[in-house]
Write a protein that binds this DNA or RNA. Structure first.
Lengths: 144, 144
DNA sequence: GACAGTATGTCAGAATACTGACATGAACCA
DNA sequence: TGGTTCATGTCAGTATTCTGACATACTGTC
């Protein structure tokens, strides 16, 4: 109870608020394509890192390995990704996009970019950079 | 595929990354008290808005009414909050903190403030304000 | 080679959160 | 009064995500 205005002045609250709004808009945009935001993020990560393992993708999407494993099985059943039959070395099983997955990702990326641009529409380039670097500093301070 | 550096330059990605890191640290801090982050947020909202309804709290914590309803029943079963037997007018049933809930919240708030301060430790006041206003502008642009 | 430490994938179980649907009560307008 | 619209609380069902645990495979060091 430091202030009377509740938690609105806390960076953490604004962070959650912004993330919730973004997630909601992303879900709205992706729903017609049959994708959730984590599923889209997974396809996006696979596009940038072909052959990534389950654990790699979990870290990229900020979910646990178990969650990503279930998500990958779902995407595999829909023919959007492919996983190797066996690990080529170690235990990590590489995953890659199918052509169907690539096509769907391309379409979904358009909606995602639309949301991103809408989100930052009222910010100047220097304000955008300040926001980006501020968020990065927060992450830096939070990871031990 | 606008850049080679993946999604790291997107504000949306940084936003998710920062929120994930914050959520993780909050959960770590609150776990010894037997609280999750949404449960803590609910107690905090109740502290600032005594007598808030289930729907009020759902909006404050950014979950659905159904999720908040389950969360409230859990907190009520633990004796941390109280709900009126009947709606005093309309359908909204006011909820309030019990003394036990208030005590637990006070303790949890210390941990929460610790995390908040750690998160922004390396930011100057002007950088903090730039971050806050940047996030607010993003929210403003995303809510229709 | 033997060992500890680390990373990975997976299983099991529980908790969480969502969408869809319905009934109830209030506010508003014709 | 009658009607529509909106907000609220709740039920049911599904989907998501987590923690905990275990076996497996690499990477060091000795």
């Amino acid at each position: 109870m430091n202030q009377d205005n509740g938690a609105y002045s806390l960076i953490g609250y604004q962070l959650k608020r912004a993330q919730a709004a973004l997630r909601s808009r992303m879900d709205d945009e992706l729903r017609p394509l049959g994708l959730t935001t984590p599923q889209y993020s997974c396809l996006e990560a696979l596009s940038h890192s072909p052959g990534a393992s389950n654990s790699d993708l979990a870290r990229a999407v900020f979910v646990t390995r178990q969650t990503m494993s279930a998500l990958l099985h779902s995407l595999e059943a829909r023919g959007l990704v492919e996983r190797a039959d066996r690990a080529p070395g170690g235990r990590a099983i590489p995953t890659s996009l199918t052509s169907e997955g690539q096509a769907l990702l391309t379409e979904a990326a358009r909606g995602s970019e639309r949301i991103e641009q809408r989100m930052v529409a009222t910010l100047t380039p220097s304000q955008m950079e300040a926001l980006r670097s501020g968020l990065a500093a927060c992450v830096e301070a939070l990871v031990e």
